[in-house]
Write a protein that binds this DNA or RNA. Structure first.
Length: 413
RNA sequence: CGGGGUGUGGUGUAAUGGUUAACAUAUCCGCUUUGGGAGCGGACGAUUCCCGGUUCGAGUCCGGGCACCCCGACCA
């Protein structure tokens, strides 16, 4: 992609309504734009990142043996009445009426939907276990949106649901999901902490949250450095000693990016999702559900990986692999020709290159590159061409190195 | 929903109640430039959030709305 063609324009000044760092950088670098309170537009750069995160999550879900589906956003009121969550779920549902004045909800989560599907289809122990997931926009009628993408009223979420014929099988899978979540966050360049949490209005007997330690976070957790115990302060209250090893606990602010729930038979019991076991005895299906907020995750990455100049994307979720800059290539000349050639060659190898072909000063190109945060920067100028080289620099390092142009495809970034 | 704050070109700011609302930046054209937001010249761009009031006169004062941000409860 040539930067001159990209639908994006960086901003020099920080828009005044942006308070948290991720919101500022994502707005200044033109990844996102606010539509109105709690609702955001993903511009081409932001959408690319979102798609990369989605790809990682999808791969990890498929690895767990889960199957991808797509459930409706418009949801039947009657299903919500069955579980008594029509009025009680918090944050509340967005509700609307059709032309016959029938009430409908915009999906904020899909336990009702998925349980409805499963109760009509799963009849036998032989149909279990079953793992289904989707990646879809969710709508939540929050009291207040805040922190840019950190808390919005419409957001992209991955929700996975699992169905089992024994508690033991559920716990086994639950632990697999935990590992899978750690891998997902790691691939996004983050180190997550898993803590005990309270299940809220999703319910169930046990839940764990995946937290990223960050000042911008709204949650507070207590963690034990010695044994690794961790819990949301909401769940355990103001304890000072670790309940497992009696050491002192540390309090940290963090961003919740994932939450997994052992639902037990909460939904299957109410909604009548049952199966026949090996003895022909009817039993409620044991369920789990597992969520990750992708758009929040994107903001969290920026919150954690940035410096004074801008964003620092990790390799797997960066909108492009390489930021290619020409200096002094304003007219048709050797520099421009060499850069074009390199751009095409890298592209042919499947490397996603953002090529800054604009007729702008070197300084401006560097500033934009730093702000956008693509992890590898390659510069071509008269200086480098004298040695038949290009200059390679990593976004998170100061040092630059010269690499022969004809060696660049063998170069390990 | 309670509390606090802010609304002026795309963005950031300025303007004792007094001409045609100013500056920077962004954008467009021309020339000149190219290693850390370059220079010169020209141009485009604003019913000063909305409605009402006070006044000879309102961006500015008053009343009422609306929007957005922050704090609280909640959440991926």
């Amino acid at each position: 992609m040539k930067l001159s063609q990209l639908f994006a324009k960086t901003k020099k000044e920080t828009p005044k309504e942006t308070e948290v760092i991720s919101h500022r950088y994502l707005t200044r670098a033109d990844f996102i734009e606010q539509s109105f309170s709690g609702v955001y537009r993903f511009l081409p750069l932001g959408f690319r990142v979102l798609k990369k995160i989605e790809k990682i999550i999808r791969e990890e879900m498929l690895n767990l043996g889960a199957q991808e589906m797509y459930l409706p956003v418009l949801q039947n009121k009657n299903l919500w009445l069955e579980t008594d969550r029509w009025q009680t779920i918090d944050p509340p549902l967005f509700k609307l009426k059709d032309r016959h004045k029938k009430e409908i909800a915009l999906g904020s989560t899909h336990e009702e939907e998925i349980t409805d599907i499963v109760r009509h289809r799963v009849k036998s122990w032989q149909d279990l276990p079953l793992y289904l997931f989707q990646i879809q926009d969710k709508f939540r009628n929050e009291m207040r949106a805040s922190g840019g993408l950190l808390r919005t009223r419409e957001f992209l979420m991955k929700d996975l649901y699992s169905f089992h014929n024994s508690e033991k099988d559920l716990i086994n899978f639950y632990n697999k999901v935990k590992k899978s979540y750690f891998r997902i966050f790691k691939r996004c360049g983050l180190k997550a902490v898993c803590v005990e949490a309270s299940p809220g209005t999703i319910g169930g007997k046990l839940s764990h949250e995946f937290m990223l330690i960050s000042e911008a976070g709204e949650d507070k957790i207590l963690i034990c450095k010695r044994c690794g115990f961790g819990a949301n302060i909401e769940k355990v209250g103001k304890i000072k000693k670790c309940p497992k090893c009696r050491s002192n606990l540390e309090k940290k602010n963090c961003i919740e990016v994932g939450h997994i729930f052992n639902l037990g038979i909460k939904y299957s019991k109410i909604m009548g999702a049952r199966y026949l076991d090996k003895n022909g005895k009817s039993k409620p299906i044991i369920m789990g559900c597992y969520g990750i907020g992708l758009s929040r995750l994107m903001a969290a990455v920026v919150e954690i990986n940035h410096d004074k100049k801008g964003i620092i994307w990790s390799k797997e979720i960066s909108p492009f692999d390489i930021h290619l800059i020409e200096i002094g290539g304003g007219q048709e000349n050797k520099i421009k020709n060499e850069t074009e050639k390199l751009y095409k060659n890298l592209g042919r190898e499947g490397i996603e290159v953002l090529y800054d072909d604009r007729d702008k000063s070197a300084g401006e190109k560097f500033v934009d590159a730093d702000l956008m945060g693509i992890p590898i920067r390659i510069v071509i100028s008269e200086k480098t061409l004298e040695k038949n080289c290009v200059e390679v620099k990593k976004r998170d390092q100061e040092k630059v190195r010269l690499v022969k142009i004809d060696q660049i495809s063998n170069y390990k970034f």
